[in-house]
């Protein structure tokens, strides 16, 4: 009973549940989605949940914004510090998202796809082509890895020079 009480009866805790749910959605997106842009979006949701956590921390029930008002003393106001910190966090989040999206653009250019499983296969093939030049002493000879790679159309250039 106490758990249910904790969940529902205690007022205000629902915010945290919302934040946790949001975080889980974000993480789920990162984990389960193969598309790189969707992962970035998941990441964004995850970051938002963290930001919301801070906002919730700073909130004082019934408090106003922490703005100095002429002639009013003993005003109940929310803790401004977490909110201020979130300005930074939001900037960080934007920067991260921007950088991630920029990377996906480059990946799309280089590989012609943004599906992570296909990218992984391409990368493995590249790795193995490289390794083929360098037979490893511990690899038993004459034991070819007969893995079939699906044909993926490779677009873009092989890493164009110049941003």
């Amino acid at each position: 009973m106490s758990l249910l009480e904790a969940l529902l009866v205690q007022r205000g805790l629902w915010v945290y549940w919302a934040i946790i749910t949001l975080m889980m959605i974000g993480l789920y997106g990162v984990i389960a989605r193969d598309h790189l842009v969707k992962k970035v979006m998941g990441l964004n949701v995850f970051q938002s949940s963290a930001i919301l956590l801070y906002v919730a921390i700073g909130k004082v029930r019934g408090g106003t914004a922490a703005i100095l008002l002429e002639g009013e003393e003993n005003v109940l106001y929310s803790n401004p510090l977490p909110h201020v910190l979130m300005l930074t966090a939001i900037v960080v989040g934007i920067a991260t998202t921007a950088l991630a999206l920029a990377l996906t653009v480059r990946i799309q250019e280089a590989y012609g796809t943004l599906e992570e499983d296909e990218l992984a296969r391409l990368r493995v093939r590249e790795d193995e082509e490289e390794a083929a030049l360098d037979p490893h002493p511990f690899d038993p000879p004459g034991e070819p890895e007969d893995v079939e790679y699906p044909e993926v159309k490779v677009g873009g250039g092989a890493g164009g020079a110049g941003v």
Binding site: L36, K39, L43, Q47, A100, L103, A110
Partner: peptide, 13 residues
């Protein structure tokens, strides 16, 4: 690029 992307996701989390 993929390495960086991977790192970005992990690092951000």
């Amino acid at each position: 690029l993929m390495a960086s992307y991977s790192y970005l996701i992990m690092g951000t989390i």
